[in-house]
Design a protein around this nucleic acid. Structure first.
Lengths: 207, 207, 207, 207
DNA sequence: TATGAATGAGACTTCATTCAT
DNA sequence: TATGAATGAAGTCTCATTCAT
């Protein structure tokens, strides 16, 4: 049962080790993404980090707080990655395609709706507000670019928020597997092309 | 303590009353859709049905079984409703729009990905297979029509399954609310139009 | 470790057995009186009742609720016993003395201040209100008699509530043990006499 | 996370600052009196002192030891204050009244029975003995004076220990509040008078 | 057909205590 | 002198499930 008997008290400091707090957050994020809030217990997180539950609580006062932090950290990372890709001096369509490709490569299905639903049900109001703000931020990064490209005339005029959410929704379809568990549309790059193309056909400007 | 004293023994049979088994299934479906598998306890279901937990177990041997039945019943109903709409002698685009409209009117966000995720995590393999079969059935109803319309030349050639999932994904964006909790695109009919249009621009055949 | 392996489900009904709910309440009351709220765990109560924790929760939704019920039941019993003694057609002083005697005979030190302090700290507001109401009831039983005897001229005029609380405070001194653990004033009847006398000297009417 | 970033290492020594050990003891005493042993955690004490838990442990090896020290310190202080008041060259009744007044002014209800109960349950035997010795000391201070006044003929002959405990028991009734939270007998001086008078009527010598 | 009573496992959380620095 | 990091044990509560009636 005992995995690796740990000692009480402060562990001797290992110079190039990641701080436990970060390990916990990363591990928790991964687990929550894969299995959701209610299916992951604090003990699961602890075991995956090879520390005890109490250690988790030393850094995060409640499970809700840990989930909140995990979600926000995740969204921040996604937002950054989106930003970096969208800021490149490339045709818009190519940037979108790269966006899809990068995200499909992450292999974990990052389905925002799911997270937000679990957040709504399980978090406190203040935690929920934080998460919502973070989600909003993330989407706005895309929205703003959509807006710019509308003004450029690259894509047709429309509701930028609607476009952004549609894009993300289509993106998650890219994870779709067929009966045998193989990606429906083939390799990641091909899938990304198909997904982007589907979106593009809808938003491109035909004058 | 006693909340609503129920009579002991077998209740007198009310001719127009729905069988308990059906009440349980409907109630459970509603609750599971709204809050998910792990957030709804057998007691929650029992209370909402105004019976005891033991009664639920009389009809459904496990929670997983109840969830399975609820999901399948729901998908069957959706499938039927999809079928009825898609079979009508109307232009394809109009049928799609009606599809969206009907589903947005149901007000509960029926997000398949969510259900399937929870199913994957919480159900037994055999239960999961049943649910997957049912999901497949439901999508195939749309896929087949897509296929037909591709052959008709109404929409462009492409992967019908991919199209079907894209359509459903875009549909759930229709539930999107802005910061104030108001639908992003206005009333249901307007939203349905926008959503359908977005999809249509992507799939229409331009020869 | 296992005390007596119990079976799942509903136990066969034993005709002349006390209902579990009552057993729980009585046991809990005894334990809480002896050790206080925080020192008794739900598991302690369960073990003392030879049932599982879950059974306790089946009857009492929270520990606070169990404590509340226990306190109220106890105070009700005390109030009743007080009432019965005070209603007798005997000189007031004799009734008081019997009161002390009966309560010292119960051997457990029923120190109201203690219970009320723990209640204040650990109960919810609504629970606290219930307990306070019950405490008030109990004291008023004595107060009312004090009032009557003041009007009769048996005891001097004064604040009846103050008198009642003083009486109870002096009563708990009766439990006092010396260094060897022996009652300071000897046997219960002698102690009761001393305590009553102390109170009486203070309240008797000398015209 | 960090609430008030404290500087690392040994803090510069502030000449007029109280030693940490004393601060801890005083703070702990206050908290334990108000909420009791089990309701105050070492972390509570630490936070209230604005130091960390480990610091508390640096000065007091266990929670029981801290409680023991706190109780003893408190009783010592009380004993001293009692002594100073009782040693004055004033009529005994006036001294008693001042005793009540001083203690009611401290506003915190110092209910010995409570502390001794918690001590009995939670302390080790050796700790308990220390506390009992301290309690005994405190009461003996009063007892001795009672003894003297009995011999003087100021008060009637009786069990001095019993008298002392009765006096303290009546004193705590002085904290009594009515339903609105207002002191039952009015301002502190008036209350002290009433309480003393009640005691005095019982013990005074009428020859 | 339906219920009331009970359980065992596991969830979240708290807390006294330890130890390297 | 004081701290930050960590633990193990225990506490409150929830929940799917079982069984006699």
């Amino acid at each position: 049962m005992k995995q690796s008997p740990r000692v009480l008290g402060r562990p001797r400091h290992d110079e190039n080790a990641k701080p436990t707090k970060d390990i916990v957050l990363e591990t928790a994020t991964r687990l929550f993404i894969k299995e959701g809030y209610k299916n992951i217990s604090m003990d699961d997180v602890a075991k995956a980090c090879n520390v005890t539950k109490a250690t988790i609580y030393y850094y995060y006062p409640t499970k809700g707080e840990l989930y909140t932090s995990a979600l926000i950290a995740m969204m921040d990372r996604i937002k950054l990655s989106i930003l970096q890709i969208l800021e490149q001096p490339k045709p818009f369509k190519e940037r979108l395609q790269q966006l899809v490709e990068v995200h499909l490569s992450a292999t974990i299905d990052i389905d925002m709706k799911n997270f937000m639903k679990e957040a709504t049900i399980n978090l406190s109001e203040s935690q929920l507000r934080q998460v919502q703000a973070s989600e909003n931020d993330m989407y706005q990064t895309i929205e703003r670019t959509m807006q710019v490209e509308m003004e450029n005339g690259t894509i047709r005029k429309g509701n930028a928020k609607f476009f952004a959410h549609n894009f993300m929704a289509l993106m998650t379809v890219g994870y779709l597997k067929d009966g045998d568990g193989k990606p429906l549309l083939g390799a990641v790059d091909k899938t990304a092309k198909e997904v982007t193309n589907f979106f593009w056909l809808s938003v491109q400007n035909n004058h």
